[in-house]
Computed example of a mutant assay.
Amino acid sequence: MVNLICCQVVTTDQCNSCKSQPEDVVHAVWSCKEVESVWSNLSWANLSDSIHPGDFTNLISSFLQVSEAYKAEIFILTAWLLWNQRNVVHLSRPTRPLGHILSVAGDMLQDFLNPQVALPVVDQIPISHQCCPPDHPQFKANFNGAVFNSINAVGIGVVVRDVRGDVVGALSMRIPLPQTVAEVEVLECRRAVQFVCEIGIHEVTFEGDSVLVIQALKSGKADRFVYGHIIDDVL
């Protein structure tokens, strides 16, 4: 409040609610006569004897040490709402009734907790993926990718095997992150096709995880897809 007076934002340090005491943080959210009715509805919030005027650190520490976490959370939300209410009053804007503060704090806490409820973990039988070598005299090219959002990039990997399952070529590279997942998958396929051409291999079976991309390639109708220009490159 002293800083506000120095900056001529306000002209007095008197509490704008009770108009009888100098206002500091503890007074605004705890000891003001106007907000006592808010805390009196909480039987466990009777800490007034241990709180000294102006000592907000002592006030908040007292609640952070309670054994039930929800009590500290309700205190923090309620104190924030009261401080926000105080700012609204200074700006001469409409305020909510003090009697609604606790219910609003409870609703805010519940809205936060609801998404935190852990979903039950269902045991799943692990699926074993085994590479099947291609029919003679073909080769098989497996392609895949990984998205790295932190660096806005995609890692592309291609492995080419012969009829015995032996690796005859491998590629790993990074490209800028495209706009959609579908575009990522079709770019993986295009790079796999380019790679087998670069190493001089023909009669190749391509295998990837994206059913959508495989169907698009089989249809041969690139104009149906937003990434049709990439499909054209592959075909």
Rank of each mutant, 00 (worst) to 15 (best):
P176F: 03
T180I: 00
I214R: 06
E207S: 13
N87Q: 07
H100D: 12
I101L: 02
N3K: 09
S40W: 05
G220C: 05
F75C: 03
G200P: 09
V25W: 03
V104R: 08
G208D: 04
S31E: 09
I51L: 07
R191N: 07
I199R: 01
L47N: 11
Q179E: 11
I101E: 05
L77E: 10
I76W: 00
V25F: 11
V9N: 07
A170Y: 00
W30D: 02
A118M: 10
L77N: 07
G106H: 13
K71V: 05
D166H: 15
S67N: 12
P94E: 05
I127E: 09
C7F: 05
A141L: 14
V159M: 04
V193L: 13
I201Y: 13
V25D: 04
S67T: 09
E183L: 15
E207V: 13
N149P: 06
L119D: 07
V121E: 05
W83A: 07
R164Q: 15
P126L: 14
I156Y: 03
A222M: 02
V9Q: 08
Q179I: 14
G228C: 07
H100E: 09
R174L: 07
D123L: 12
I156W: 04
S40T: 06
S43H: 10
V2L: 10
Q138R: 13
V117M: 01
L212E: 10
N16H: 08
F75R: 04
T57R: 14
L177H: 05
H202W: 09
F148T: 03
D232H: 11
H90T: 02
S48R: 12
Q130T: 13
C131G: 05
A222N: 00
A141F: 08
V213W: 01
K71H: 13
L109C: 03
R161C: 15
S172T: 12
A192H: 06
F112I: 13
D232C: 12
D123W: 06
W39V: 09
H202I: 10
A28C: 13
A141C: 15
C18I: 13
L212S: 11
F143L: 09
S37W: 03
L81P: 00
A28K: 05
V213H: 07
P115A: 00
L187T: 12
W39N: 06
